Each structure stands twice: as structure tokens, then as C-alpha cells.
Simulated assay, not measured.
Amino acid sequence: MRSLLSGARVRRPARRPASPALRTALATTCLALAVLPSGVAQAAPFRSPLLKTGRLAATSCPEPPIVDGGVPRTREYLTAAVRCLNGSWSAHFAQAGLRFRRPAVRFYEEPAERVCGVPWPTGAAAFYCTERGTLVFPLTGAWIENRTDLYPLKVAAHEYGHHLQSLTGIRDDYETRARSDRTRRAELGRRYELQADCLAGVFLGSVRHSLSRTGQDWRELSEAIRASGDEGEYRTHGTGADRVRWFERGRRALSPAACDTWTATPSLVS
């Protein structure tokens, strides 16, 4: 069975039984491992062409106001963000000789009972429907409502990272290996999510100089990412420290090649 949803969370989840949607996702988040001569278990490397491409070109992506005159402009903000993501990554794929397809985008004023054929995932800020290649953005909620920081742009770029994983064979490889071994599903699910964090960092780094943001804005983003980590029993996206680490790694390197979470030691994907 394939995972249908990959989502970003706003805050640390409580220690509670996993929802049906989460159990479905976790049931497919495993990957065959290789044990190095040193005895350190690591995931076998993926052969995705995305991890062999160079730096993402610097582009301009000025942010529209997310609130204008006291009126929320979340749809306009996210539409502009996706337009920038499409332009940046489509050009990168073309240069690398990779096939590109834009994701579909769906906006919801508030969470619906069902989306993409499954119940709306509990606690998700935004998410990506893998089977339908669709970015799903609720226009309300703590992840975006009344915010003026960079966190909504980072969340959009993270979900777009899942689209890139689907386009370049990472998801297919991941799910094929998942069916062979369920013993490390939580750890390897985190590898998948942390790679999306890293790809988000690559994008935000490439548009950094057009965002008109200060050093304090970037420090606040790091704190928001840290607060989105999961530290409890059900760790699906990684600790706050690891989420910041992989995001910053991508932002500084500006290259998907820096986002090989699959061969990272387990301590870096905790």
C-alpha cells in the first residue's frame, strides 16, 4: 500500500495514538538498510538523478503581503509562492535534462472531511497528495493565519519537495523498498521528510536576496522550524534540531546534492 499524504506540522505533536491516516503513512515509511563495515546502519543510497544536479540558480521571488490592510491574502501569497517554485525548479530540471511536471494545487478555507480520497490528516499544516500530485493548502490555521514570518513559504517549499521526490523516482524507490522491511519505518520516514526540509532550504536559499528579509527574520524562521519538530513517541518528521540542520544544509549548499538523507547516520535523522 502506498502512502497518500505527506504533510508538514506546525508544532510538536502530543503523545497520542496515531490517526488512521498517520498509521497508513507510517506503514509505508520504511526502506531496506545496508550495514557498513563499521557496523553503523545506514540507508542504501538512492540513485535519483535529482541528487546529482548542481546548484539551483538564484531567482527573484518577492513576497506579496500575507495580510494587506487587515485582510488575509493567504491564497494570493501561496499562489505567488507556487509560481516561484514552479519557475525555479522547472528551469533546474530543464538544465539537468530531467522531465518536469507542475503539481496541481488545491486551497481549502478550512479542513475538509476528506481530501485525496482519505480523511484529512490530523495536525497537518499543509500536505502533498502523492497519488494525485497535488499540493493541498488550508488557508487557515496556525501555520499561516496572522503570520508575517517566512514559515508559510518554508512549508510550501517543503510540500513542493515531496513533489520533486515523486518526479525523480525517490518516492517510487522508497516505497518499493518499504514493502521489503518494516523494522525501521519511523526512522526512514523521517529521512523522507527531512529530505523535503533540505529541498525547501535549497529553494529559500536560491531566492533569499529577493525576499527583503533581515537576519532576524531568518533566525525566527529557524526557531519556527525547530518548534515544528516532533520530540514525542510518534516521531514522523524529525526533531526540531534535525529539521533545522537539514533545512540549513540545503539553504547554504543551494544544491539537491546536499540533501542525501538516505546515507546519513541515524543520529542525524532522529
Rank of each mutant, 00 (worst) to 15 (best):
D149C: 06
T140Y: 08
S38H: 11
Y108K: 11
A58T: 15
C61H: 00
E175Q: 12
E113L: 15
P49Q: 02
L51A: 00
T53Q: 02
F46H: 11
A57T: 07
E109I: 10
G54C: 12
R47F: 11
R75C: 11
G141E: 02
E175R: 06
A96M: 12
L85Q: 01
L56W: 03
P152F: 05
V118I: 15
L135K: 04
G123M: 02
L78S: 00
T168G: 06
A94G: 15
R101E: 06
P138V: 00
E113D: 14
L135T: 01
A43R: 07
E63Y: 06
H163G: 00
R83C: 14
C129P: 04
E159R: 07
P152G: 08
F137D: 02
D149R: 04
A157R: 05
A104G: 14
L78T: 02
P72T: 07
N86F: 00
W120M: 07
P72C: 09
R73Q: 14
V105P: 04
S88G: 10
L164E: 01
R75V: 12
A43M: 12
A126H: 04
C84S: 07
G70L: 13
L56N: 08
R73M: 11
A96C: 13
D172H: 15
D173Y: 10
L164S: 03
A142V: 13
R171C: 08
G117N: 01
V136D: 02
R73Y: 08
P65L: 10
G117W: 07
P119R: 08
L153N: 05
F46T: 08
P138Q: 07
R55A: 13
E175M: 06
T74P: 05
L51N: 00
G70V: 14
G54W: 13
C129N: 03
Y77N: 04
V67Q: 12
G141R: 03
Y108S: 10
I66G: 04
Q95W: 11
A126T: 04
V136E: 01
E159Q: 14
E159S: 09
L150D: 03
T140D: 14
T74M: 12
Y108I: 08
L85H: 03
L167Y: 01
W89C: 03
G54T: 09
V115H: 04
E131H: 10
A80H: 06
A43P: 07
A94L: 11
L78W: 03
